[in-house]
Every structure is written in C-alpha cells, then in structure tokens.
Design a protein around this nucleic acid. Structure first.
Length: 433
RNA sequence: GCGGUAUUGGUGAAGUGGUUAACACAUCGGUUUGUGGUACCGACAUGCGUGGGUUCGAUUCCCACAUACCGCCCCA
C-alpha cells in the first residue's frame, strides 16, 4: 500500500460518524440550555503557550508535544489540550471586558494532538469536548460545571457514573502540602520506585498517582491534602460539596486525585464509569477543575476559571455500548434504469424528487434489473421506480411499493411536479391500512 | 523513549522452503426477454505489510523499517 494514515490517527467512516454526529448534536443541545456558546480556536499555537501553561519544567510536555517549526522558523505546536488556547483567546479578545456577561462561558469540540506511542484508547490525534467558564470564583460555578458534565453524559445515554472530587487548594495550601509530602516521603526515599525518587524532587504530588507497588505502600499512609487546606480553600471545597448535595449528585472525595497539568487549583473532579466497552474496568471519561490564575499568567487581569474536558473517542465507545445506533435515514426512492437513456431520465427524476424533499438513490453501475432491485432492497427503499424502453416511450414511471410488491404507472409529469402526493398515496396511506 | 505480539484477497481466515495460496462471507454474473427471497452454477489474491539478505528456489528462514494491538513511561 502506497499511503497509510499517519501513526496514531483514525479514519471515521460513515457508519461511525453518525454516532459522532449524534454525540456532538446532543452535547450542543445541553450547552445551549446552560448558555455556553461555542468557541473555535486554532488547532495550533505557539509552542510556548502550551509549554508554559502546562508546566514547562516537566520534560513530559516537550516529549509529548506535537511540535514543529514553520517556514518562518516559528516554533509551533498542535494543541495538546483545549484550555490553553481558549484562555489565550479570552485574553487576546479582551473577553474580560465589562461588555461581556460574567461568567463568560464557552465550549469547544475538536481534535487534539499528542506525540506519543499509540496504545489502548490513546492516539496521536484524538478529540475532546470541553467547556470553560471564566470570571467567577463561586463554588456554585464549579458545581454547575460538574452538573453540566453529568447532564451531558446522561443525555448521550451514559449512566452508572461515579463522580470523584478533590481539591488542590490555593497556592498557600499547595506549598504547605508539598512540604508535608516531601517530609513524609524523604525518609523512605531509597525504598521508593526509581521514578518516584525523581518525582520527589520535581513533583511529589505525582507520587500519589503511582501504580508501582513499592510506592503504594507509602502512599496509603501519606498525609492528605485535606489536612493542609487554608481556611479559604476549605470553605470553597465545603461549599462545592454542599451544592452537590443540594443537587443530589453523588460523589466521593478522593484526596489522592491529582492533575498532570500545573495550572489547576481548588476543585478538581473526574467522572468515571465502567462499561463492557472497556472490559468493565472503571475509566475516566470526563476530567476538569478550577484554574484560577491561568488567565493572569497569560497576561490578562486576574480572572478565575473552571472547566472540563471529555475524551470523545472513549465516550463514543460508551455510547455505542449503551444504546443502539441512531437508525440510518430512510431511503424513499430507488430508481432502476435499464439502459443509458433511462439512466439520463433517472437522473432528472431523481433531482425532481429530491427537490420535493425525498431521499433518492439510483444505479450508476449499469447493472441488470435484478441486481438493481437487490440493491434497492438492501438499502430498504420504500419505492422503486423502474425506467426502461416502455416507460420512456410512454413517458410514465413504473412505481413499485416494496412492502406490498404492488406496482403502478404514473406519468413523468406527475412524478416531477407532484411527488409529494404520490408518496402520500402509496406509502403513508399504505401504512395506515 | 523502552518492551511484547502481530501483519495473507473487499471481510473473516487456513496454509507450505519448491510447478494451481484452502474454506467461508461479501460482491458481481448466470439458471431464456425488465423486478426484491431461497437454491444451484460461475467469476473473484501472477499475490502473502515494505525493503534487503540467506537459498538452486521464500509468502514460509534472517535483518531492518512501517503500521496495528497490548504493556511501561506519561497522561492533556
């Protein structure tokens, strides 16, 4: 084969894209109800934008960034996540201005990229649906965003959700907790995994997320961030929990939950579900949190923000598992043509009938009548129009109702000008009998 | 970046160091003129991911590369 798709990409073919469309359409309906508007931002930005927002110290960022130098020798990167670009747009378009209602709420959906080795559920090009809400510190906004996520998942038929929440607190909290973790783990340094020994230097929080059994022994009794919250952070978290209770949204507090990105603080949350689609393993489909301070870091005025992202590929699998595909659209008419001249007439009639609002297909392979009927049958055509020498000579179409097998003649004229009434007579009234 | 497994037609696949690469599904055609199902008949990989090598001879052995899947790292 001469060409193959780039590593880690996928072609979405019509059968599956119907499912994508379904999920996207449902999502938009939910966003409308919550008054989130769509924002479309570039699929690539300056490399520095992503590197800085994600935490440029981590070599992870450079390792997984899909970056390149353009012809002007600018260092660019395909967007690895949605938030950074949206925050940049928020600042650049001065959306913090007084003329915009606060909080300023947007959603996006589209491809993201990361340069890594493809494996289970991970591709180099993947898709996310995400939301961001700027300008309010209210814990009620955190809660509304969570509620939005839950609603969205319900809307596409994904149930059995588990919401996990945690707080990373404010900067003072993080500093104190950081120190506490270092104090706790340092004496066991030699007993930790090699990776965690490095994490201890760079980002002790990540040790909590380790899968290595050597680390888990100590993680079990590690200090909890909940004990290091400043009063303000504590109040915020408590208010989120109260609001969730008020909405009857179940949740579990997971004090070991962390985020890979540096910009998160205060509330972070994940929605998990287990499904046969994933071998009944519990997997996260939605993750988000608060990122007060990010707008400021990007050169805007101090503006709080909160949002989440959903991995679309994963969600699609869930939806596919949870419910049957939305049915393919009906084929109203299939036109069988028996010679070249009839083919030309078929083209004309097809156009007229389509203009009347019906779906029409016809043969382009010069196949025999039997073969064309087979196709019509396979595509579930309601009506089949046959055009051959006789029909052309008499300027009439033979129209067959596939359900009953009855066939009758209708002048071309009527087919072209009043197909609606033919259809009503043959199909809709037929159904009532 | 590291490791494991895999790669045969439109699809699912069997198979062997040597003159015709099973079988099934799908598709197309036929079983007398232009009508859906079934049955029966026929057609359908000069080719076994790509490039090298070993060999008298490779789809089968070896190497490299590509891609896919599964792990590690990491996770946006």
């Amino acid at each position: 084969m001469k060409y193959q798709k780039p590593k880690g990409t996928a072609d979405v073919l019509p059968d599956t894209s119907r499912l994508w469309d379904y999920v996207e359409t449902k999502s938009r309906q939910i966003f409308d109800r919550y008054r989130f508007g769509e924002i479309r931002v570039p699929m690539f930005e300056s490399y520095d934008l992503y590197a800085r927002s994600s935490g440029d110290t981590s070599d992870i960022v450079t390792k997984e960034m899909y970056d390149f130098h353009d012809k002007g020798d600018r260092h660019m990167a395909l967007r690895p996540e949605g938030t950074a670009g949206v925050v940049r747009a928020f600042v650049e378009n001065k959306l913090y201005g007084p003329e915009y209602p606060k909080p300023y709420r947007v959603y996006y959906m589209g491809p993201m990229f990361r340069y890594e080795r493809p494996q289970s559920g991970r591709q180099r090009e993947f898709h996310q649906i995400g939301v961001e809400a700027f300008g309010s510190e209210s814990p009620l906004l955190d809660t509304e965003v969570i509620q939005l996520g839950v609603d969205l998942l319900h809307a596409v038929g994904v149930h059995d959700l588990r919401l996990a929440i945690n707080t990373l607190g404010d900067p003072a909290t993080r500093d104190a907790y950081h120190q506490a973790l270092v104090d706790y783990f340092a004496p066991h340094r030699a007993e930790l995994s090699e990776d965690s020994q490095i994490r201890l230097e760079k980002n002790p929080l990540r040790i909590l997320d380790s899968k290595d059994p050597r680390d888990k022994v100590f993680v079990k009794d590690a200090p909890s961030i909940l004990d290091y919250l400043t009063p303000a952070a504590q109040n915020h978290f408590a208010a989120v929990k109260t609001a969730l209770d008020g909405l009857n949204i179940d949740y579990t507090v997971d004090p070991t939950m962390v985020r890979g990105l540096d910009y998160y603080n205060h509330t972070i949350f994940e929605i998990m579900t287990s499904s046969p689609a994933f071998g009944n393993k519990e997997l996260t489909v939605l993750a988000g949190g608060r990122y007060d301070g990010l707008v400021e870091q990007f050169g805007g005025p101090a503006t709080p923000g909160v949002g989440f992202g959903i991995g679309l590929e994963r969600l699609i699998l869930l939806v596919q598992q949870a419910q049957q595909l939305p049915p393919a659209p009906d084929l109203n008419v299939y036109i069988v043509s028996l010679n070249d001249q009839a083919g030309e007439e078929a083209l004309r009639l097809a156009h007229a009938i389509r203009n009347a609002g019906f779906t029409v297909d016809m043969d382009f392979m010069a196949r025999k009548a039997k073969g064309q009927f087979k196709t019509a049958n396979r595509e579930n055509a309601q009506l089949v129009i046959t055009l051959g020498e006789d029909e052309l000579a008499n300027q009439v179409a033979s129209i067959k109702q596939m359900a009953t097998g009855k066939q009758q003649q209708v002048p071309f004229n009527t087919v072209e000008n009043n197909f609606q009434s033919i259809y009503q007579h043959l199909v809709e009234e037929g159904e009532q009998e």
